[in-house]
Simulated assay, not measured.
Amino acid sequence: MLTIGCHLSIAKGFYHAGKEALSIGANTFQFFTRNPRGGKAKEIDQEDIEKLKALMKENDFGPLFAHASYTMNLCSNKKETREFSKMIFKDDLRRLNQIPESYYVFHPGSHVGQGAEKGIELIIEAMNESISEDGAATILLEGMSGKGTEIGGRLEELKQIIDGVKYNKKLGICLDSCHLYSAGYDLVKDLDGVLQEVDRVVGLKRLKAFHLNDSKVDFRSHKDRHEKIGNGTLGEKTIVQIVNHPQLKNIPFNLETPNELEGYQQEIELLKKNYKND
């Protein structure tokens, strides 16, 4: 079964987001753990969560995607920003214990001129301070496009972070089709080769989730510009090949395309129609 969803607001509650997902044919969804451009987090309503759990069980939902705030930068060149980011990171992990099965997805960060090695060192340090041996959350580093001073544009950087975290049993990666293509991994001409490289460097067992996006920009552009499925440089054929690839068919997908609900519904219908359920 294809596990597919999109990014939805939880402003009206988790249960409302779950109902919204169902209304467009989705069986998962992504949400921000807090204000994506700030640090404020809405209090969790346990009754709302219980209703969501029942909804997910009744409708065979896959894991949800809990996306961290964009303001979180564990490898900032400013100590106060790093401390603020660690506070967000720890609080998000605590809050996820109250939410049904969710993968915590976050952008590794930007080293802001300190160099990739220093940036990776700071990320590892922050994660080791925050992740305990009995931590319940599955934490996913998102692969990035490699723009500016971003960490995570190369699989080797994600691998280095994972290897540096002491309690990394529940640590994995979330790949993004737009980011991968922009970073220089040719999904259009060599999807098999890209997945072989993921397996060689990080290990496919660490790949737990996938963001599906077409791209407004060219291959190896190192820019992050998402496009609607079929309207970009990846194209509909490549996206359909991704969801049908035998090494990817058991992982959840989420759309981050520039759409409203109706557009997401159309894309979900398109992918379901082209999904080979074998």
Rank of each mutant, 00 (worst) to 15 (best):
M1N: 05
T3Q: 02
T3Y: 08
T3E: 01
C6F: 02
I10W: 02
A21M: 05
A26F: 09
N27F: 12
T28G: 12
R34K: 15
K42H: 09
E47W: 06
I49P: 04
I49D: 05
A54H: 02
M56N: 13
K57A: 14
G62M: 01
P63W: 07
L64V: 08
Y70N: 06
M72E: 06
C75W: 00
N77F: 06
K78G: 07
I88S: 11
I99R: 13
P100F: 09
Y103E: 00
Y104R: 06
Y104P: 05
F106S: 05
G109T: 07
A116T: 13
G119A: 03
I120N: 04
I120P: 04
E121A: 12
E129S: 13
E133K: 14
A137D: 00
T138P: 00
L140D: 04
L141V: 07
L141T: 05
E142K: 11
G143P: 04
G146Q: 03
G146P: 04
L155N: 09
E157H: 05
D163I: 08
G164R: 07
V165G: 07
K166V: 05
K166C: 02
L171R: 01
G172P: 03
S177R: 03
C178N: 07
Y181Q: 03
D186C: 08
L195P: 00
V198P: 04
D199R: 13
D199Q: 13
R200I: 10
V201W: 04
V202Q: 01
L204Y: 05
R206Q: 08
F210W: 09
D214L: 02
R220F: 11
S221N: 13
E227H: 08
T238M: 03
T238Y: 02
I242V: 15
Q247Y: 10
K249P: 00
I251P: 03
N254V: 15
N254T: 15
L255N: 10
N259V: 09
E260F: 11
E260L: 13
E260W: 09
E267I: 12
L270A: 10
K272H: 15
N274P: 00
K276T: 09
